[in-house]
């Protein structure tokens, strides 16, 4: 099997806002790749540089230095945008247009024919939960409906890659659920997805890989499975019976004692299996076992806080 081609390539990207003394560096030398078929979550606190990076990918902002390429083309070129579906962070759609007309406009700009649009638009409205709303003026659409329409315009031409800035912004829980379903289908069809989100459960569910950005710099970039691995926490409550002694290997782990009960927390699944096995061999009574995993959100908050502390210490 051949190596997967990179869809997004950012190298030493620096983006600044403002001029002179009011210049602000929003993105500070970040490098990352997104390869074909990957679903990558781009997460960070407000003002971390997520939207700035995505806007640069789309050619709305221009880097001070570094390069960004999409599909091997310089970002912002017509060719690079031909194969991308983009959902902006916040966008209103022309209030004087009907949903169908708006999708005709965007589909037409993607090069779709009238015939293709006639078939695609009802299907698409159905997919995003706006069936029967095609002839309604957008001034009568709620924020959530506008966001659904935004998703529809982004995927109208079956683009090879999707770039979503704040994926589920403005959507209610049902909308988020529907969107997740749509994106999972798209992901399973082998399309590339790169999105920023504040909804970290969404990132956990959908993404293969996560890039965390803080104050314009990438602080972590890893597969979701790797990030979640050290976060698992197992707890065993047990007691030793009939004069059996605590195995030395378990004692070394420092279980907490409460009367004749022990409580042991372990954050490694293999060690956990071994300890359970050794306790059984040693004749211990295992009263309960439980596993708890920290969410990506907790991990992210810790990372951001520790990053802040390091800067404070420096």
């Amino acid at each position: 099997m051949g190596e997967k081609r990179p869809i997004v390539e950012a190298k030493d990207l620096v983006v600044e806002y403002g001029k002179g003394s009011r210049k602000v560096r929003a993105v500070d030398g970040i490098s990352f790749n997104v390869t074909e078929g990957e679903c990558v979550g781009f997460i960070g606190a407000n003002g971390a540089g997520k939207s700035t990076t995505i806007k640069t990918l789309m050619g709305f902002l221009f880097p001070v230095s570094g390069t960004v390429r999409m599909f091997g083309e310089d970002c912002g070129t017509v060719e690079s945008r031909r194969r991308i579906g983009y959902l902006p962070e916040v966008a209103l759609y022309y209030p004087f247009m009907k949903a169908r007309e708006l999708l005709e406009l965007y589909g037409g700009l993607q090069g779709m024919t009238k015939h293709e649009l006639r078939e695609r638009i009802p299907e698409l409205l159905n997919l995003v939960g706006l069936q029967g709303k095609g002839e309604i003026l957008l001034r009568n659409f709620s924020k959530g409906m506008q966001q659904r329409l935004g998703i529809a315009q982004a995927i109208i031409s079956h683009p090879e890659a999707l770039i979503f800035d704040e994926l589920s912004s403005g959507l209610d829980p049902v909308g988020r659920h529907d969107l997740r379903r749509v994106l999972l289908d798209i992901k399973n069809s082998g399309k590339t997805i790169f999105f920023s989100s504040h909804e970290l459960t969404e990132v956990e569910t959908l993404c293969d890989r996560v890039i965390m950005i803080h104050e314009g710099r990438i602080v972590t970039e890893a597969p979701v499975s790797d990030l979640m691995k050290p976060l698992n926490l197992f707890e065993i409550v047990f007691s030793m019976q009939d004069g059996n002694t605590l195995p030395e290997s378990v004692e070394r782990l420092g279980p907490a004692r409460d009367g004749n009960q022990y409580r042991l927390s372990i954050n490694d699944v293999e060690l956990y299996s071994r300890v359970v096995h050794e306790l059984s061999q040693a004749g211990a009574a295992i009263h309960s076992t439980s596993s708890k995993s920290r969410s990506l959100e907790e991990y992210f908050i810790e990372l951001v806080k520790s990053s802040g502390n390091e800067e404070g210490a420096a």
């Binding site: 017509v78 945008r81 991308i84 983009y86 966008a91 700009l109």
Partner: peptide, 9 residues
């Protein structure tokens, strides 16, 4: 409204 528009080719 310019963002989704200029995101097209």
């Amino acid at each position: 409204t310019i963002y989704p528009l200029l995101a097209k080719p």
